[in-house]
Design a protein around this nucleic acid. Sequence first.
DNA 1: CCCGAATGAGACACCCACGTCTCATTCCTG
DNA 2: CAGGAATGAGACGTGGGTGTCTCATTCGGG
Lengths: 183, 183
Amino acid sequence: MAMDRDQVLRDAAALLSRKSTATMDEVARAAGIGRATLHRHFAGRDALVRALEDLGIREFEVAFDNARLDEGTAVEALRRLVAEAEPNAELLAFLVTENQLFEGDEVNEGWARLDARVIALFRRGQEEGDIRIDLSPAWLTEALYGLIGSCAWAVVDGRVAAKDFQYMIIELLLGGVRRSVEK
Amino acid sequence: MAMDRDQVLRDAAALLSRKSTATMDEVARAAGIGRATLHRHFAGRDALVRALEDLGIREFEVAFDNARLDEGTAVEALRRLVAEAEPNAELLAFLVTENQLFEGDEVNEGWARLDARVIALFRRGQEEGDIRIDLSPAWLTEALYGLIGSCAWAVVDGRVAAKDFQYMIIELLLGGVRRSVEK
DNA sequence: CCCGAATGAGACACCCACGTCTCATTCCTG
DNA sequence: CAGGAATGAGACGTGGGTGTCTCATTCGGG
């Protein structure tokens, strides 16, 4: 039964996150199905990537919901956000680099929705005095994505321990590298 | 005459940094030469990417030299480093994502040399008390690359003003997003 | 148990980019 | 100015991945 289109998608995500040039045949094999069946689910490679994009956006919308970005201070929300994002960090890294390719061809509007939520979070933090105002929310959003992606790769490559994922990102993002003088 | 093999390389870098899937034909056109001539300079696409890798490594080694990573405090050196890296930020972004593809096939050892220098810088900062010790130098190095790459993309996409490049990276990296309480 | 739907394996043609080659033209040098 | 080297344009064959199709097999529901 066509039950596990979603499972196929997740297997594809797992593979493509690590090897973005994987063949349709490799994707099919990774998902434990035949190439023909893969094509029955997704018209072509492009459609597969788009579906992956949708999956990623869905996942992150759920993650954002779970992180309750509106509750507590922005800093607290940010901590929750990173924690919720961790399971899909690799997928994010894949999609971000993949998106560089979609030159003009209408980018999925889901990204704009997600961006808006993160930007709003940073802006709220700025208004409440928790976050510095000399760094634009748009840049902070980009930087957040970048750090999550970088850390995901670093974990895959063994340069960062998986258990340190959240700590490394959050601590760097919140406090920077400089050692506080007065603390 | 084969005068501008280096110029060809830079044109290729400029194009491939933005469109990593560009055709050899597009690369040639971007460099203002014929595809045949391009092949006379670089045996194939692979050789081109390798040459680009060498170029990037060379550029960054020069940048690191100019940044005088051993002088002054680590924080000062970091500022100089980001400033020196700016002209080649896009190239770095391209090479970093491209490197994800070179699965096992011996990665250029130049990266290890560069990494070692940055890691040494962070370690020096930690020993001198300027940089916090709860974030590993390896991660800080990855994060630095990630932020440079992210900011380069953000500039290309118009989400960050080019003139803010250094400031955005350095300020975020040094101080984080949190607004100092006592400042 | 039987029948239909879904699947896997493979064959097949297609397309695009690659790499090679040729040839006329341009450019530099002597 | 003449000759040789380098170049650009294009033709050509090739390979690898894609997308479609067929057919035998398996699976699941009636």
